[in-house]
């Protein structure tokens, strides 16, 4: 037998592993982004100072470029895999049922929840990062008043609703994606796979509930 064959990234397993690693790193971003956003519960100054600390660091451009590369890598690979998977079954079934013992709502809707998250990501960046610019002086330092932008943005109940739908989709997406990454990387053993799957579901709930808390908080603040 010859081991000659595929360039690693052209192999079905290589592609799975790229999806898994990029997905796990993006999960890390989600977690840090959420933890950082919790500063808005402390107050406007804390949130603005947190945002200023991040954006005034010149390394932010490197971090943003890395993050963009991760997203592009994950999205590009996903599109490639979806097209290949579609081509692998040119004639679909007249009737197809799942057994109820394997696939889940989260696992069977990955392309859809992922697409919702992608559309949301673009709207989210345009509405907040590139949203209305206000400045504020805290302790003699002039900085962007991102708190005000955020509060204003979520005065619109449609923005709140859209955000919640998107982060719930994202929660569903990661509830399968997180454990799936471990499986793709070869981590599946009866002694721990149950715990990874449980952690994956919990992570999905934390993402959905944690991120939903921000627009709800802002909406309640904005009403005052």
């Amino acid at each position: 037998m010859s081991s000659k064959g595929s360039c690693s990234l052209h192999s079905s397993i290589g592609k799975k592993q790229v999806m898994g690693v990029s997905g796990l790193l993006l999960c890390g971003f989600l977690l840090t982004h959420m933890l950082g956003n919790f500063t808005m519960f402390i107050g406007a100054d804390a949130f603005n100072k947190y945002s200023h600390t991040l954006t005034s660091n010149p390394l932010i451009y490197l971090a943003e470029a890395g993050l963009a590369a991760l997203f592009l890598c994950h999205i590009f690979m996903a599109i490639k895999l979806i097209l290949e998977n579609k081509a692998a079954r040119p004639v679909s079934y007249h009737m197809r049922e799942t057994s109820g013992r394997g696939s889940t709502f989260a696992s069977s809707t990955m392309p859809y929840t992922g697409s919702i998250a992608l559309i949301f990501l673009i709207i989210h960046i345009l509405g907040l990062k590139f949203g209305t610019q206000y400045t504020i002086i805290i302790n003699g330092v002039e900085m962007r008043d991102i708190y005000k932008t955020t509060i204003e943005y979520f005065r619109d109940s449609l923005h709140v609703l859209g955000y919640i739908v998107a982060v719930v989709s994202l929660g569903i997406h990661v509830s399968h994606g997180f454990w799936s990454a471990f499986q793709s990387l070869g981590f599946n053993h009866p002694k721990y796979i149950g715990k990874i799957q449980l952690l994956s579901k919990l992570f999905g709930i934390v993402v959905a509930v944690g991120f939903s808390s921000f627009p709800i908080f802002c909406y309640l603040q904005g009403g005052k």
């Binding site: 064959g5 595929s6 895999l81 692998a88 696992s107 454990w179 799936s180 793709s184």
Partner: peptide, 17 residues
């Protein structure tokens, strides 16, 4: 795995169906 890919099977998405 290379042969499997060459023959046009799809990619696994860990659904366990």
């Amino acid at each position: 795995v290379a042969k499997m890919d060459e023959l046009g099977f799809g990619n696994c998405t860990n659904e366990a169906e």
